[in-house]
């Protein structure tokens, strides 16, 4: 299968953290949500994909090509949005645009101007005068104005209000209507992903916990609620994470059918949200 992004046994070692041989793939036409708590390795992975950090091992292929060997060619087809504004604060939107545009062979000025109007951005405004939401919209406009086939976003919605976040998600959803394009989207606001993601890759402490279709994840994972009397050693082994209180327990399972068979009506099982999955997995 032709993947738009392939990460194989990727490794990066720091003094206090190791990204430990992670692997996942993204197909064309899909949105992959990359979730994990702070410090799990999300930004490190994105920096490695963008070749901002040098990998210690493994392989990254984008559009089927090695991301270092074909760096320029590959980056020409990537749109990036980072968690905060990294553009030069003293420049105006127009100047910054003309700087960035000169790097891309497929820059589309009319598309950029369209986004400027849609986002209500003044091209003469200095970047430092924009609000956080406006800066994010500017980054998004840049990322979407050179016909990129892969959009890589590192926590684009963090710190934004729900209205802005919804707007951004709607735009991403419209981008994905072109079945050749894909979005790789890291966030810890998991509700955003429940709306738009097709695949979820969960990373924790530098290791991939799972990388699966979102529907599979939401179908199999469940929150189990029951009394403390059934929580013996065997039962504990069935759960990914457990939260105990004086009156009972709540736990996460990745196999609701098996849990139902084991405990019958002694427990209550509800579908887990991505947030539940993240919280319980981190707590284990």
């Amino acid at each position: 299968m032709d993947y738009i992004l392939e990460v194989k046994n990727l490794r990066k070692e720091f003094k206090n953290f190791t990204l430990d041989n992670i692997s996942f793939n993204l197909e064309p036409g899909y949105i992959m949500g990359f979730i994990g708590p702070n410090g799990a390795g999300k930004s490190t992975t994105i920096k490695l994909i963008m070749n901002l950090l040098k990998k210690d091992g493994g392989e990254i292929r984008i559009f089927g090509k090695d991301h270092e060997k074909y760096e320029k060619e590959v980056k020409n087809r990537i749109g990036f949005v980072y968690d905060e504004n990294y553009y030069y604060e003293d420049l105006t939107i127009n100047t910054m645009k003309s700087v960035v545009a000169s790097f891309y062979s497929n820059w589309d000025d009319s598309k950029f101007n369209e986004y400027m109007r849609e986002f209500d951005l003044n091209p003469k405004a200095k970047i430092k005068t924009l609000s956080k939401g406006m800066k994010m919209k500017f980054s998004l406009a840049v990322a979407l104005s050179h016909n990129a086939d892969l959009i890589i976003m590192d926590e684009p919605t963090s710190g934004l209000d729900p209205v802005f976040r919804r707007e951004i998600l709607d735009i991403l959803y419209s981008v994905i209507q072109d079945e050749k394009k894909s979005i790789f989207f890291s966030t810890h606001i998991t509700t955003d992903l429940e709306k738009i993601a097709d695949y979820i890759t969960f990373i924790n402490r530098g290791k991939i916990v799972f990388s699966k279709p979102k529907d599979d994840v939401l179908q199999n994972y469940g929150i189990v609620k029951g009394g403390l009397d059934i929580l013996d050693e065997n039962a504990r082994k069935e759960f990914i994470g457990i939260r105990e209180t004086k009156v009972g327990f709540e736990a996460l399972t990745d196999n609701m059918d098996k849990t139902r068979r084991m405990f019958g009506n002694r427990v209550l099982i509800e579908r887990a949200t991505l947030e539940d999955i993240m919280v319980y997995s981190v707590r284990r």
Binding site: M50, L52, K75, F80, Y82, E84, Y86, Y87, F103
Partner: peptide, 12 residues
């Protein structure tokens, strides 16, 4: 932080 921008653009 702006170093991330230039190094993310298509230039080796």
């Amino acid at each position: 932080k702006s170093k991330y921008v230039i190094n993310s653009l298509p230039i080796n």
